[in-house]
């Protein structure tokens, strides 16, 4: 780990004043929240911040509900949010996508703000001796043609096939999530669906955030019908593993027919992913194994496999179908 200076400011204004931006080379300043991604990657020498600004004294750790609106401070931990009745009862998919992620120890410190920005597990990103355009722009992508079983099939480019490894963003994205940020004196609100960038030809720049911009809160609109929602995480072992594929599903049903379906995909895409075409296809249709499989197929139109991860396309389709069918069975 490279040396850095550490600060623990006591309010947001100070915090946003002092931070020095961390650029795409992984240097400069960084926000320290739970640290479960940051410290991990610093130990691997992937990130080399010169300053850490610890935001633990900045509050931003409350969950407020007002009708359909759920507002979460960016420092709310994954464990806290998973237990909140607004999720547990009001939208199980939002709770399940949290408790099915990582381990209790990690969820106790990992924050929602940090979780949205979780970095890929691509082994070539994590190994500084290998080529990675995300870590070192222009160095190439060793994952293409390499070991890529766990990597993305949607939203990829020849420059980068690293997947977004998180779960919760793919559920939050179903509920018109808006991310509030602060940069210096200025704040702004960004739709979660527009927070991340596709890798294209610049995979190092993963989000639209400025280097010194701080996520302060996340706001969701959770309709009452979101009680019928479910997060299916398909993985090699039963717990404490990343998703091979996953589907976050919420269904508004009218008898057997779908009034509205919302579908997010995990483990398969380079960014948090919402399958809007599949949602549109289901609108007004009766949900059956056949329509569910069709929706799955639509969700993966345009997907591209890279060898080891080819299976994620058929598996992803089946994951969507199964998640739809299981969600429909919920009362």
């Amino acid at each position: 780990m490279r040396p850095f200076a550490y600060a623990r400011p006591k309010n947001v204004r100070d915090a946003t004043d002092i931070v020095t931006p961390m650029g795409v080379a992984g240097q400069g300043g960084a926000w320290l929240a739970g640290g479960t991604t940051l410290i991990d990657l610093m130990k691997l020498d992937v990130l080399r911040p010169e300053q850490l600004t610890d935001i633990q004294a900045l509050g931003m750790d409350e969950i407020e509900t007002d009708g359909e609106t759920v507002r979460l401070g960016a420092r709310v931990t994954m464990a806290q949010a998973a237990e909140h009745p607004a999720f547990k009862e009001g939208a199980p998919v939002l709770s399940q996508a949290l408790w099915k992620a990582a381990s209790p120890q990690l969820r106790n410190v990992a924050t929602l703000g940090g979780n949205l920005l979780q970095r890929t597990r691509c082994p070539y990103f994590r190994d500084v001796s290998k080529a990675c355009n995300k870590r070192e722009p222009g160095s190439g992508c060793d994952a293409v043609g390499g070991y890529n079983r766990l990597l993305a099939v949607l939203g990829t480019s020849e420059n980068c096939i690293a997947n977004y490894p998180g779960d919760w963003a793919n559920a939050a994205i179903l509920f018109d999530a808006v991310v509030e940020t602060r940069r210096g004196r200025r704040g702004r609100a960004i739709e979660l669906g527009k927070l991340h960038r596709l890798p294209g030809d610049a995979p190092a720049r993963e989000t639209v955030l400025e280097d010194d911009e701080l996520i302060t809160a996340i706001e969701l609109t959770v309709p009452s019908w979101a009680r019928r929602s479910y997060y299916l995480k398909v993985r090699d072992r039963e717990s404490y593993a990343f998703a091979n594929t996953g589907a976050a599903v919420a269904l508004d049903m009218d008898g057997d027919s779908v009034r509205e379906a919302r579908i997010g995909l995990s483990g398969v895409a380079t960014t948090p992913w919402r399958a809007r075409e599949a949602e549109a296809f289901l609108r007004g249709k009766a949900l059956s194994e056949e329509t569910a499989m069709q929706a799955g197929a639509i969700a993966f139109e345009g997907a591209r496999g890279w060898g080891h991860n080819d299976f994620k396309i058929p598996l992803g389709q089946r994951t969507v179908a199964r998640a739809l069918l299981e969600t429909a069975r919920l009362s």
Partner: peptide, 8 residues
């Protein structure tokens, strides 16, 4: 599982 084939 008949759809997703996780083995337990």
């Amino acid at each position: 599982n008949k759809y997703t084939r996780e083995i337990r």
